[in-house]
């Protein structure tokens, strides 16, 4: 499955990057979202996949035994998902505010801070 996912992740990265390189604010934020999914999925995949065995210690057991999914990447991804959520929601609201102030969705209209001659 890693092989298949490798291609899926590659496509997600390409799509995310491509969207972010558009001039539209909306595509930018959606691109960021795709990029986030891609990164999380990547950690999950390179952390190796184990089908169906969650890292839960049985009711009457003391240690996790047998095959089980690596819990650490899961914990990392969980943290990353939540952080990503916070950051992306903020970015979305930022874009909304920018649209409200600048009055356009076109990033090419938002170059004033890079213009040398004021």
């Amino acid at each position: 499955m890693e092989t298949v996912l490798a291609f899926v992740i590659g496509i997600l990265f390409a799509v995310g990057i491509y969207l972010m390189m558009r001039r539209s604010l909306v595509k930018l934020i959606i691109g960021l979202g795709v990029l986030g999914h891609a990164a999380n999925l990547l950690i999950f995949t390179v952390g190796r996949l184990t089908r169906g065995e969650p890292p839960l210690i049985g009711k009457h057991e003391e240690v996790l035994s047998g095959t089980f999914a690596d819990p650490l990447p899961q914990a990392l991804i969980l943290t990353a998902i939540v952080i990503g959520f916070g950051v992306q929601v903020f970015a979305a609201v930022l874009i909304k505010s920018a649209y409200r102030i600048v009055g356009t969705d076109d990033l090419d209209e938002m170059k004033s801070t890079d213009e040398t001659q004021p």
Binding site: A6, A14, V15, V63
Partner: peptide
């Protein structure tokens, strides 16, 4: 870029992972 990422994943997942941390968590 996507292709690079794919290649990278394929290279990495071709070797097994020896986690130094997870066994400790499991125990």
């Amino acid at each position: 870029f996507g292709g690079l990422v794919t290649t990278l994943i394929l290279i990495i997942t071709s070797e097994p992972l020896q986690s130094r941390l997870s066994p400790y968590f499991a125990e």
